[in-house]
Amino acid sequence: MHNYVDGGLSEGAKAEVEAWLRAHPEDAERMRAYADQNAMLRSLYNPVLDEPVPAALLAVHTRAWRRYAAAAAIFALGIGLGWFARGEFVAPQVVQLSFARQAATAHIVYAPEVRHPVEVPASEEAHLVGWLSKRVGTTLKAPKLAPLGYDLVGGRLLSGPQGPVAHFMYQDGRGQRLTLYVSRQRGEPRDTAFRFSQEDRVSVFYWVDGNFGYALSGEMRRDQLLQVAEVVYKQLNP
């Protein structure tokens, strides 16, 4: 009988049970009630599947990844310093890789933060932008991503291999976070096209504009992130 409600019967057995139930209305009523219970319980608890997973629960994962990311960042920093020591004829792409990696590392470290995701909240946006502009050494803007569903959470100052880094964080209604990492670049001013790097689960689009490198990171598919990256790029280069 329970198997009938839970869909565990073959077609033949099912037909037999149905014949029985037609002759026994009380049992039929009971089976209907049990099937209703299944349906109610599912509609009651299935929405939990769509809730964003709290950062604390991902920490089991993140703690392990952070160690890996930190090691990778140090490795990348080593390559960067090596390149600097040897002169500029070594492929600058190595440093580009490390830039995406730095941004991904910062994303992985700060995006799961629940209580302290940023140093300065979006409510003090003017102060935040002024402060980070001064420290990084250029006039920054925090892109407006509300039309895409992302609101500014705030930002913080980080220390990167090339000095101060401005780090902006955005979040959508479901708690999905994006970070924009802006840092001065070594060497001659230049412009590059969009580049993409997949750093474990973090997708990163990055580009260099003059003396500054920009990297947008998020745990989402490349095409989703590209959509946001294009908007960020257009706003920063009107």
Binding site: Y45, D50, V60, H61
Partner: peptide, 29 residues
């Protein structure tokens, strides 16, 4: 990291089992 993808379902079951959201997430943790 295969474990990670099962978190939503663990949360669903825990929520149904203990009722309270925070107690449930403690159980998941």
């Amino acid at each position: 990291r295969l474990i990670i993808e099962h978190i939503p379902r663990l949360r669903r079951y825990a929520r149904a089992l203990v009722g309270d959201r925070y107690v449930a997430d403690d159980l998941v943790q």
